[in-house]
Amino acid sequence: MLVPPAIPPLTPIDELIESLRTTPPPAAAPIERDIVYGMCTVGDAGRIHDKHLLAALGWTVGTRLDIRCRPDGAVLVHSTEYGETHVSANYNFRVPYRQRRIADLNVGDKVLLVAHPADQQLAIYPPPALHAVFGQPRNRAI
């Protein structure tokens, strides 16, 4: 077994200490600035509550919503004139049982919310949809 030689760094000690004191680089900004993200816990009867996201979408109390399930397990919510459900006075809306069953969305689940205000669309990603993306082990660079 070969042991690498212990060679001290050629950088002056002051520079090494200063590099440790600097703050970490800021987090990367999202690619699209018009996307709003949020998380919430699915409430009783499938209620989704995030006042910040609803305000970003411009959905006020009484806004009618159409809710559809995508094949990948995400739930899409659109503002429409003839929607089945609506935004309530508490700034939440209810995902009907049939859509929750199709998307495997259960009361108490934590969900990722992705709002696209320009398109008047909200995507709800339940745990099974997130597991499809993040659940597989990844190779880690060391």
Rank of each mutant, 00 (worst) to 15 (best):
P4E: 02
I7Q: 14
P9G: 07
P9Q: 08
L10K: 02
T11D: 04
P12H: 14
P12Q: 06
D14L: 07
D14Q: 14
D14N: 09
L16V: 13
L16K: 03
I17T: 10
I17S: 06
E18R: 06
R21Q: 00
T22W: 10
T22R: 15
T23V: 07
T23C: 14
T23P: 13
P25K: 07
P25G: 07
P25I: 00
P25T: 04
A27I: 09
P30G: 04
I31W: 10
E32K: 10
R33E: 13
I35R: 02
V36C: 07
G38S: 12
V42G: 02
G43V: 00
G43P: 03
G43F: 01
D44H: 05
D44Q: 02
A45D: 10
A45R: 13
G46H: 03
I48S: 00
H49P: 04
H49A: 13
H49K: 04
D50H: 15
K51Y: 09
K51A: 15
H52W: 05
H52N: 12
H52C: 06
H52P: 01
H52M: 07
L54G: 03
A55M: 04
L57N: 08
L57P: 06
L57F: 04
G58Y: 08
G58S: 06
V61D: 13
D66K: 10
R68P: 01
R68N: 14
R70K: 08
R70T: 15
P71N: 13
G73M: 06
G73D: 09
L76C: 03
H78Y: 15
E84S: 09
S88W: 01
S88C: 04
N90A: 13
Y91L: 03
F93S: 05
V95R: 00
V95Q: 00
Y97H: 13
Y97K: 07
R100C: 04
R101F: 15
I102G: 08
L105C: 03
N106M: 11
N106C: 11
V107E: 13
V107L: 05
V111Q: 03
V111E: 02
L112M: 14
V114S: 09
A115E: 02
P117Q: 08
P117I: 00
A118E: 15
Q121S: 04
L122Q: 04
L122E: 08
A123M: 12
I124S: 06
P126H: 05
P128Q: 08
L130V: 06
L130I: 05
A132I: 10
V133Q: 07
V133S: 00
V133K: 06
F134S: 04
F134A: 12
G135C: 07
Q136P: 06
P137V: 01
R140E: 14
